[in-house]
Write a protein that binds this DNA or RNA. Structure first.
Length: 434
DNA sequence: TCTGGGGTCCTAGGACCC
DNA sequence: TCTGGGGTCCTAGGACCC
């Protein structure tokens, strides 16, 4: 038995914790670069604002409907997420943190009334952290996700499901007939693992609801689609196929990519951006104690513009696996110079680290060439770099090719409406006035 | 003027091996 | 006239997730 605990409209709820006047208002949180809406309050959803709606297309609602837009404040969301997760963990013995706002809990061995227990955990998260969440319970992770969807929808749209499913929904307590009714009332695209493409194909085949999907022929699903969708159907039928991963696995690839605040055409500007992205990626790499075997670098124009299009990537193998910022930046810059062409209005660039491996395994080799640097010294240098940037703030010590932050940089992302780091920066702490 | 960022898994097809 | 069978590895691309 699994539970899924999921924060409602998470980023918006985080903002509301420190700005209660936003309660009841239509609010969206914008992606990096203030590009599009990535979180919407219920009121914003009711205005018809879609997930991913470009800000410039919905901006007019600020005047007409009192829509409030905020730049993403990931420092705040990450911190409130940690607090929410530690309380959600109280629901059962094992927890898998699935995303910034969701965690699965393995309920094996938990006695008593699971719904009552969930309501208590939910109330505690609301009171101690200030984030409202929905909790779904089911025999498999896919059913727990479905239950979570029902819990949220029952709360947001009265009449859509039985009232008592609001906030907490345990599918395992339903009779077969009740379960069928719920599945028949749920569109198939709400299932975890059924995205846009597969939804389209299912609808063409007359599979409209979750109930239709759960009754589909398994062999046909595997033939027509894949083992992935077959697994989803089995999970809906109550056979657990996706295990809880309570120990986070190290990433197999690490990326740092950004859209630019303004189009970039000059190589030297790109070099600054790519240096920063490669440095950030290398830092993430060291944080999970990995080495990278390859560095990928890409640049591209905006596919939304009518301008001449250009999109190239290049993968640079490293001499030996490394987590050294200087090595990774050098490889990324060499790649950039190889793919750069003048005359294009570039909108985005990025660096990805591939072929990651643990830094405790080091392939030995014959010393056929002179070592310029002592590997242990370089490791200490990187540790010092990370410590300094941790203590005095990101960008305190950086590669010279990153340029100076004080200079005007076309590539820096736009963030015109960001709220303070209420919980992560002393100077930004909220002040209570009597 | 203005459209995010960061991941995972699976499959098909080609190159290559004996 | 007739041209096998069985396998691995790699890559690109597509689907999904939040």
């Amino acid at each position: 038995m699994y539970a899924l605990v999921d924060g409602n409209n998470f980023y918006v709820s985080c903002e509301r914790v420190f700005r209660p006047t936003l309660n009841g208002c239509p609010v969206v949180v914008l992606s990096n670069n203030d590009g599009c809406a990535i979180a919407r309050s219920n009121e914003a959803k009711a205005l018809g604002i879609a997930m991913g709606a470009p800000w410039f297309k919905i901006k007019h609602m600020a005047e007409s409907d009192g829509l409030v837009a905020l730049s993403a404040n990931f420092a705040l969301y990450g911190d409130l997420s940690d607090r929410m997760m530690s309380l959600a963990a109280g629901l059962g013995p094992l927890q898998e943190i699935y995303s910034i706002d969701e965690s699965f809990i393995d309920l094996t061995g938990v006695r008593g009334n699971l719904v009552e227990r969930s309501h208590k955990v939910r109330a505690r998260i609301l009171q101690w952290v200030g984030i409202p969440c929905g909790i779904g319970i089911g025999a498999t992770k896919t059913l727990a996700k479905l239950a979570n969807h029902i819990a949220k929808t029952a709360e947001r749209k009265p009449g859509s499901y039985p009232e008592h499913f609001a906030q907490v929904c345990n599918l395992a307590t339903l009779t077969p007939l009740e379960l069928e009714a719920v599945m028949a009332a749920t569109p198939v695209n709400e299932v975890w693992g059924v995205g846009r493409q597969i939804t389209k194909q299912l609808l063409e085949g007359g599979v409209n609801t979750v109930l239709d999907l759960v009754r589909i022929d398994l062999a046909m699903v595997k033939r027509r689609w894949s083992v992935v969708l077959e697994r989803t159907v089995r999970e809906l039928q109550g056979t657990s196929c996706i295990d809880l991963e309570h120990a986070p696995q190290p990433k197999q690839e690490i990326a740092c990519t950004r859209s630019f605040g303004h189009p970039v055409t000059e190589l030297h500007e790109l070099e600054e951006a790519v240096t920063e992205f490669a440095s950030r990626a290398a830092q993430k790499l060291r944080k999970q104690s990995s080495l990278a075997g390859q560095v990928m670098c890409f640049i591209r124009t905006s596919p939304f513009r009518q301008d001449a299009q250009y999109s190239r990537s290049v993968t640079m193998p490293l001499r030996r696996p490394s987590a050294d910022t200087t090595v990774i930046v050098a490889a990324a810059l060499a790649g950039l110079r190889a793919i750069y062409r003048p005359g294009f209005k570039l909108a985005k660039a990025g660096v990805m680290l591939l072929e990651l491996q643990s830094d405790t395994v080091q392939q030995q080799e014959l010393a056929l060439e002179r070592e310029d640097d002592n590997v242990a010294d370089r490791g200490r240098l990187m540790t010092t770099l990370d410590d300094l940037n941790q203590r005095y703030g990101r960008g305190t010590v950086l590669m010279a090719s990153a340029g100076l932050a004080g200079n005007r940089r076309a590539w820096s992302m736009k963030q015109e409406r960001r709220t303070p780091g209420y919980t992560t920066c002393l100077a930004d702490m909220a002040v209570a006035r009597a």
